[in-house]
């Protein structure tokens, strides 16, 4: 059982929880992820980490309500316990001195990008953050991330904050600006919606920039056992939970990943609707 020591709502459907998990907090690194199971009978779901505190022994996660399991977690308050928290899973981000690094992230990818930005900056890189969301309110944790970036650019689909448009536009604009100054990204790190990462990879491939994407396939155990999270990378089957979740974005078969992510849509809806009916009289919030 893992105690929640802090809970905050960041937006109507996005919340933060800080969980006491000393063994995990002791050694978690940027790029690692956790598996949560809220309570008995619950699903095992992969969760990314926004921040950790080794001294306090806590990890902080930012979660968006998208279905039953995340909705259930959102009902937990400070002092409540999560049944299972497992980690740190996956391989951490390869942190080294690349030079000029761009971090492109969207939506709930931003909190994870925060840790990557922090560690890359500490390793002596110049870090340019490019973040986006559908609308201003959905931009979360971007302030924390901006602390570790030498420059931070924003966009929203509706233009309510920063440039109007997508992170792809933001990235391409930046690449061109840098070109004029005779500079080029040495590495791009991207995390966020799969469709976004697919298009980011398309752009960086065109410009020949080495790109790492943090993937988010469906998982069950998270320890290499089941193979639910398999992705095709460079024509080979890889398991995101133990071989990833970060891969060379130019080698990833994003279309297949997108297809596999949609596999349980109808079941997810059945489960969520039943839960809302039972617990919230059918209402979402």
């Amino acid at each position: 059982m893992f105690e929640i020591v802090r809970k905050e709502w960041l937006h109507e459907v996005i919340f933060l929880i800080e969980v006491k998990a000393p063994a995990i907090a002791r050694k978690i690194k940027a790029g690692n992820f956790l598996v949560f199971r809220a309570k008995e009978g619950g699903e095992r779901i992969p969760i990314t980490v926004a921040e950790y505190d080794r001294k306090k022994g806590t990890v902080t996660c930012i979660i968006q309500v998208v279905g039953k399991s995340t909705k259930l977690l959102s009902t937990f308050e400070k002092g409540d316990y999560i049944q299972d928290v497992v980690g740190p899973l996956g391989k951490p981000t390869e942190i080294k001195k690349y030079g000029l690094v761009g971090i492109v992230s969207g939506g709930l990818g931003i909190p994870l990008a925060n840790l990557v930005a922090k560690e890359l900056r500490n390793a002596g890189n110049e870090v340019i953050g490019m973040v986006g969301a559908r609308t201003k309110e959905l931009l979360v944790w971007e302030e924390e991330m901006s602390k570790y970036c030498t420059e931070m650019d924003y966009c929203t689909d509706d233009g309510s904050f920063g440039m109007k448009g997508f992170t792809t536009n933001l990235l391409e604009k930046k690449i061109k600006e840098l070109e004029k100054e005779g500079k080029k990204f040495d590495m791009i790190f991207t995390v966020g919606p799969t469709i976004m990462m697919k298009f980011i990879a398309g752009i960086t491939k065109k410009y020949g920039i080495h790109t790492i994407a943090s993937l988010n396939p469906i998982m069950v155990d998270g320890t290499g056992m089941c193979g639910a999270c398999r992705v095709t990378v460079g024509g080979e089957i890889k398991f995101a939970c133990v071989d990833g979740p970060e891969f060379d974005a130019h080698q990833v078969d994003f279309d297949e990943l997108l297809m596999r992510l949609g596999q349980y849509k109808k079941y997810e809806k059945v489960s969520y609707d039943l839960y809302l009916k039972e617990c919230c009289g059918g209402k979402q919030k």
């Binding site: 009978g41 699903e43 039953k68 069950v220 596999q263 079941y267 997810e268 059945v270 489960s271 039943l274």
Partner: peptide
């Protein structure tokens, strides 16, 4: 699933 367990199977 879905009454007592949250993990679906296809």
């Amino acid at each position: 699933f879905p009454e007592k367990a949250d993990t679906p199977i296809n």
